[in-house]
Design a protein around this nucleic acid. Sequence first.
RNA 1: GCGAAAGUGGCGGAAUUGGCAGACGCGCUAGACUCAGGAUCUAGUGGUAGCAAUACCAUGGGGGUUCAAAUCCCCCCUUUCGCACCA
Length: 804
Amino acid sequence: MSSYDHRDIERKWQAEWEKTRAFNVDIDHAPRPFYNLMMFPYPSAEGLHVGNVYAFTGSDVYGRFKLKQGFDVFEPMGFDAFGIHSENFAIKTGTHPAKLIPANIHNFRENQLKRLGAIFDWDHEVDTTDPAYYKWTQWLFIQLYKAGLAYQKDAPVNWCPHCATVLSDEQAEGGVCERCGSVVETRVMRQWFFKITHYAAKLLENLETIDWSDKTVTAQRTWIGKSEGANITFAVDGHDLDLTVYTTRPDTLFGATYMVIAPEHDAVGAITSQAQQAEVAAYVEAAGKKTKAERQEDKDKTGVFTGAFAINPVNGAKIPIWISDYVLAGYGTGAIMAVPAHDTRDFEFAKKFDLPIVEVISETGEASGDLSEATTAYGKLLNSGEFSGVESEAAKWAIVEKLGKDGRGEKAVQYRLRDWCISRQRYWGPPIPMIHCEKCGVVPVPDEDLPVLLPEMDDITPDGSGLSVLARNEEFVNVTCPVCGGAAKRDTDVNDNFLDSAWYFFRYPSVPRADVAMDPAITKKWLPVDMYIGGNEHAVLHLMYTRFVTMALHDIGLIDFDEPFKTFRAHGLLVKDGSKMSKSKGNVVNPDAFLDDYGADSFRTYLMFLGPYEQGGDWRDAGIAGIRRFLDRVWRFVTENDLADGMPQDRETLGVIHRTIKKVTEDLGSLSYNTAIAATMEMLNHLNKEERNFKGEAEILLHLIAPFAPHIADELWTQLGFEGSAGKAPWPAYDPALCVSDRMTIAVQVMGKLRGTVEIDADAAKDDILAAAKAEENVASHLAGKSIVKEIYVPGKLVNFVAK
RNA sequence: GCGAAAGUGGCGGAAUUGGCAGACGCGCUAGACUCAGGAUCUAGUGGUAGCAAUACCAUGGGGGUUCAAAUCCCCCCUUUCGCACCA
């Protein structure tokens, strides 16, 4: 019998599956649709990263499991090929992305993805750079625009000087460009935004009902950042002007000793006194130049007095209005009431500028007199007029209610989430399908003119002017207005790469339909996605955007659901020898080498064996040999074994087999792949100790390994004489009656310490078990000379004697 | 700074309605088969003591609850990951 040659076998079965279209689904007629989605890759020049393989394999194992359970599994694959990353790489190497990307995609698909043994349905491949795809990305933009969810505004935005483009808040977390790591600057620019904040409440509420990984839900909840408080309106002394602040602590209103507005606040010009003008202007200018990171790093509070005073609506107190960049323009009203006694930031500021600090909350309602630091805890009010002595929680809303009578206060809800800045001043993306006409204003490109093709340009290097590369192409820019027919100009920005990927899963099932983005019947049949698996690094980027787009499409009336993914699971991070893989450390695992040397089956199985899939794993090169040995043992079990027909009759072996089926079934359902593989190994170890083996045992073994090691499973399946494919044969059922052993081992403790075990029939009576336990030699010696005070029996598990 | 998760042999990791700690695998040790072994097979492998039976110790550290704690509670330490002036 020949030995296990993974090269021949894998080549053979991949060709066979492709030829017989084994894993292509009938999109229109599949009776039990199951949409199994994984995050599509960016086709880099370096090729598929082992992290991609880890992610895809975990998803594919799940898809294969569902397939064996009788579902029509649709598992598409595609390429997220637009974006700054490709473009920066192209500029660096001097190869145009239009040349580079198709070559990369070809390499990914033909040389790498097709070797993984996944059940990809290539009939539905998506490439975001294909005009046939981005036509619909542009169409989607226009739908959002028509629904009032896309708008332009001048706003302080994140500008990455290295990438020479603006970024969304999500791509500039921590003040650093997500792509290149540069510190981003704040620039005020006119940009397109998507009104994701329109769905803030729904994005948050739905988190309660969707089945997503906890850590992803938590990340989204934090990012949305709901807070409940009140808007309180202060009059400005000597001006016919009000300033509204947002606060979560109206109970501290009597302690407001000054007010702060952001440097970008609209009222800055109007309220600044003559005497303060120069100082204020200088401060505002300096604040504008600071990068986001600088603002955050500067622990020291800075600020200037405007010369104006506000009137506290609750007690008429006149308090100074300051400007400081510790108040953010983009959150709340861009203005705060400062309560230094009960807010740490206000406290710091008050100390620095010697502003008064008034205690209005204490534990008892009596003045504590300790003003050495801010106390943010709730308590009882003091120095608060009619509210003195009232508990914070009650006082909060009582004060707001009182203010409400004068129109000076109302409850308010704020979200941290900001609108999604969608424009990019770059080349490699779908042009924003808008036309600017002097007469007609902003006009969307008519559907029949889509796609707006990305023009071919030799020089695609951004010039940092704040204008996109496309602005240099006059032929592209100049256009006739679709409304009035006059001269007009195209929008020269391209859309954020995250828009391309925010709807790709809608497109997959409807590919290759050219007349619609998504066919209504097909979409109804296949969506929402049943299972989505991907990295948690996209928790607040991609996954938030997809939910927004889905909600928008729902409200536009194109779909009847408002959440894109029924289930989402975040896989863990794959590390190597305990530390993150990175090019600079030179510890990146190259998938190709392991596919060559050990085969896809060993590679897949090993990746899934490293640790709990949702927590990640620690790759070490030596470990894969152990998995290879396991598959070698499977091979020999089937090919070098005189297998008898049928199943064993031995009750113990049947118990092992059925318990293993049960364990693996449950583990695959919960993505506990590492323990599923371990259980299968245990079963094989047991079978190898038996004198005689059976064909039925081999059959079950192949079922259990098939999701992980599909090629060898199909090969041995065929060699055993079974028809068809192990990958598609129905998943084995287990008999619960056989999962229960007819003998049990009871641990016997004396005073909580293990002194022995007894083996006894599973249906033995408690008294018999206790008697047997006492009779056990070592137990008896520990009980000698003592009297038993208490006997504890945990059925099926353990006996504990408490003795004196 | 705030929040969350985690800390178990030489290593990756099992075990969580409290009930035999260390499954499975790597590595290591010994033996078998071999011209050879970085192949394969068999046996062993948490620590200390002992020829052994066995005993004691052991799940980051310290307390506690319990007949019984990796698991529950309190305090501390460490690591990782989020968020980071959001009023």
